[in-house]
Nucleic acid binder design. Sequence first.
DNA 1: ACAATAAGTGAATGTTCATTTATTATAGAA
DNA 2: TTCTATAATAAATGAACATTCACTTATTGT
Lengths: 197, 197
Amino acid sequence: MFIYYRIVRYKDEHKKESIIKATIKLVNDIGFVSSSVSKIAKEASVSPATIYIYYKNKDDLLVSTYIEIKKKIGMALLKDFDDTLPLKDTLLRSWKNGFFYIAENPGLFQFTEQFSYSPYGELVDKKDVEKYFEPIIKVLQTGIEQKIIKNVNFDILTTFIFFPVMILSNTRLCSNFEINEDNIETAFSLAWDAIKL
Amino acid sequence: MFIYYRIVRYKDEHKKESIIKATIKLVNDIGFVSSSVSKIAKEASVSPATIYIYYKNKDDLLVSTYIEIKKKIGMALLKDFDDTLPLKDTLLRSWKNGFFYIAENPGLFQFTEQFSYSPYGELVDKKDVEKYFEPIIKVLQTGIEQKIIKNVNFDILTTFIFFPVMILSNTRLCSNFEINEDNIETAFSLAWDAIKL
DNA sequence: ACAATAAGTGAATGTTCATTTATTATAGAA
DNA sequence: TTCTATAATAAATGAACATTCACTTATTGT
């Protein structure tokens, strides 16, 4: 007869968080090309080998960081989500949530932009990300059925109602767009004109 | 008395072109992170040292490649440019030019996307790029003055009338948007609804 | 034919890379 | 307190990196 013990020295979640934080900071400051595991380790004040306790390899670290951020952004977007409101108001609320979250966390956003336009983007299972945005996508589909918005290819719709948030939030692309209630509403009115029937 | 000779072996422009071509191919295939000078040299069938005859360093090679591509895209966009047409027609023509050029040269477009969202983007003097797009920007300004399109922040305007071309052309972002006359015109009608007064 | 000079190169440079190995530190059940 | 599994690490590894070096090849006016 055998008795199995489970004696564990628990992983330090604070350490994991500081590795992710260091990854984001470094990638934003010097880019993927220059962000080595040792530099990330130094920034997080851990040994390079420690990173390999929490992540399989460098790719795993970067992909996990990306998904973690996408989850946060998705949740921010859906704050106070209420699809009993008129469609237009539901969308505008998400716009505002998105703009203000990105404005308060520019590093998170910048990381995802750089990541998703690089070949790292292909390492991500899209479904792992899309699930965080599902409710708002469903709202659009309902809008088409109720003949409130144009019945066009879904890619076209998202181009005009989601991407403007990302483009206008990108200070590199839009240096003259100041993020405040008025400007968001002005921009939103163009988006709404584009998609409304 | 001295006699100075000026005897030159001229640089082989074909070689320079093959280095740029190799750079684009490699960056698209494996990304900036993995594209080393030696790999680019091998792809171009030259010695790594040869690259340093044509370019100061690796950054110079990448930035030059980017500007070269932007010039080509800008010129494609402005093919048959005619600002005596109604504003709407001028813009639609550019949309079609843009879509079809990108569709025929997906590698060029993909390189610029990856480049401009990476820290390499900061190495480029924006004016070196903007000049290739100037005529079409002026058309928009005229449209505002003539009260044909909305008088809003210029960043908002470009978000709805230029970026959709880039988003919809990006197969990674829009896998369900097929590029043909009909679909381009449908997408353009949303853009026009957004910006028209 | 030859002098002059730039184009072009393969190999070597020292550095940095991602990852592994060998070892120590520590938490917690018995 | 003792024991054990895992966290954590410093140091080591071989491969790959950007760039330079010493050299050869090609071109062209004289």
